Computed example of a mutant assay.
Amino acid sequence: MKRIIFVRDMSCQKCVDRIANELDNTRLDYEINLKNKSVAIEGDNDALYVAKQAIAQAGYTVM
């Protein structure tokens, strides 16, 4: 199931790179969209939780 996470303070390519670096460590299947300030992941609620934790670890706020 595809889940969408909105990241309020993602504003540039450097932000995307930092988030991608953290998400790469999770082994999740994800897609980052800078224009919509969102991260789409494939998975269940556990995967969603892991992704939110990784984004927070990168220093960004999940909406």
Rank of each mutant, 00 (worst) to 15 (best):
I55D: 03
N45K: 09
Q57T: 13
N33C: 12
V62C: 05
A54W: 03
I4F: 08
E22F: 02
I55C: 03
K2F: 13
D9R: 08
L48P: 00
S11D: 06
R18P: 02
K14R: 11
V39E: 04
I55Y: 02
G59M: 07
Y30F: 14
A20P: 00
E42G: 06
C12Q: 01
I4W: 01
N36W: 10
K37R: 15
G43W: 04
V39S: 06
Y30C: 09
A47F: 00
S38G: 05
R27L: 11
T61Y: 09
K14A: 13
F6H: 07
V39W: 04
A51P: 09
M63I: 14
K2G: 04
Y49S: 13
D17E: 12
R18S: 13
K52D: 08
I41M: 05
L23T: 09
V7S: 03
R18Q: 11
V39R: 04
R8K: 15
E22C: 10
V16A: 06
A58F: 03
Q57S: 15
I19H: 04
L28Y: 01
E31I: 11
S38D: 03
N21R: 14
D9C: 11
G43N: 08
E22Q: 15
D24M: 14
Y60K: 02
A47P: 01
A47C: 09
K14G: 11
L28K: 01
E31H: 14
D29V: 10
M10D: 01
S38V: 02
K37L: 06
K14P: 00
M63V: 13
N33M: 11
C15H: 05
Q13F: 06
M10S: 06
Y30R: 08
A40E: 15
G59W: 07
I19E: 02
N33Y: 13
R3T: 12
V7A: 02
R8Q: 15
E42A: 08
L23P: 07
A20F: 00
D17W: 00
A56W: 06
